[in-house]
Design a protein around this nucleic acid. Structure first.
Length: 297
DNA sequence: TACCAGGTAAAAA
DNA sequence: TTTTTACATGGT
């Protein structure tokens, strides 16, 4: 058993972040004070357990049975919870806005959580195209339980090598359309052959990442931006065609009706360069509120 | 039962 | 060049 300590950039509220994440992905969380994730450390499926020990300054403890590659464990652990993300500059911008000021106060310390790998994020994006998040989640669940690796009671997401050698017909059996199954198979193949270099993306600018992803079959503008904001936590990126964002921007920043993509960007423009974080906070607030107490402006 | 849900590529006009 | 269409599952 290895235990290591992470000191995230303050503020960081892990339990709040977990509550928001689990509201997006209908995974039953047994103990809300512990985050448990299956990842691969140098290829070996391992469970990481996160607990927040102190609030200010934030201290988070990570437990794992993996006894090799402590450096890699720390890197992935920090990556998963966005430990290095500094929310303060965003908060300073948000506080000057009547609606966001209330929301960032309510959700102080909320950080997005990332999937364990950018390849998983690619598959998440493809599965969530057009269909509901619940339907996409169920399909992904079947993919994970068919081709992933079980560790304790959790599943590590399938490797791209595994999905690259999986027949398209097997992916279709998980509930993907013919087309999406081809996208996933092709992306897995291209990553495994080094034709699509995901490792390089974190070092590139938003536009460079967007242009690389947009060239891939099955990755359109929505998916490219979805990976940028959710997979790479680029704080200014907004998947502007996103139905959820268009609805929530209408509810909190507009008339109540779903906005057009153009109007979403107009409404978010004052949060530059943190438009994506602003959208994330709006979505998170809506998810956590049974009703929607903030009236439209 | 319909219809819509955090889009995309390819066909048709 | 722009517009239309097929597509998969799950919730309401």
């Amino acid at each position: 058993m290895t235990v290591l300590t992470i000191n995230p950039v303050a503020p960081h509220d892990l339990e709040l972040s977990m509550r928001v994440m689990s509201s997006f992905a209908p995974d039953e969380v047994k103990d809300p004070s512990v985050l448990r994730v299956a990842v691969r450390i140098h290829g070996e499926p391992t469970v990481l357990e996160f607990r927040q020990r102190h609030r200010a300054p934030p201290v988070i403890e990570v437990h794992t049975d993996c006894n090799k590659g402590v450096t890699e464990v720390r890197r992935i652990a920090k990556w998963l919870i966005c430990a290095d993300l500094d929310l303060q500059p965003f908060y300073r911008v948000a506080l000057s806005h009547p609606v966001l000021a209330l929301i960032v106060e309510e959700l102080h310390g909320l950080k997005p959580m990332r999937p364990a790998s950018l390849f998983e994020m690619l598959v998440i994006a493809v599965t969530e195209q057009q269909i509901s998040m619940a339907a996409a989640y169920r399909i992904r669940h079947r993919i994970v339980e068919s081709f992933g690796d079980e560790v304790d009671d959790l599943w590590a997401f399938p490797t791209y090598e595994r999905l690259a050698e999986t027949p398209i017909s097997e992916l279709i059996k998980c509930g993907l359309s013919q087309r999406k199954a081809e996208y996933v198979g092709r992306l897995a193949y291209r990553v495994s052959r080094g034709l699509l270099d995901l490792e390089r993306l974190p070092t590139l600018s938003d536009e460079e990442v967007f242009n690389i992803l947009f060239q891939e079959r099955g990755i359109g503008p929505w998916s490219a931006d979805y990976l940028l904001i959710r997979g790479l936590s680029r704080p200014d990126r907004v998947p502007v065609d996103d139905l959820g964002i268009r609805a929530i921007a209408g509810r909190y920043l507009g008339s109540g009706q779903r906005l057009t993509a153009q109007r979403v960007m107009r409404k978010l423009s004052s949060f530059k360069p943190y438009r994506g974080l602003a959208a994330f906070y709006l979505l998170a607030y809506a998810r956590l509120s049974k009703n929607y107490p903030l009236t439209p402006l």
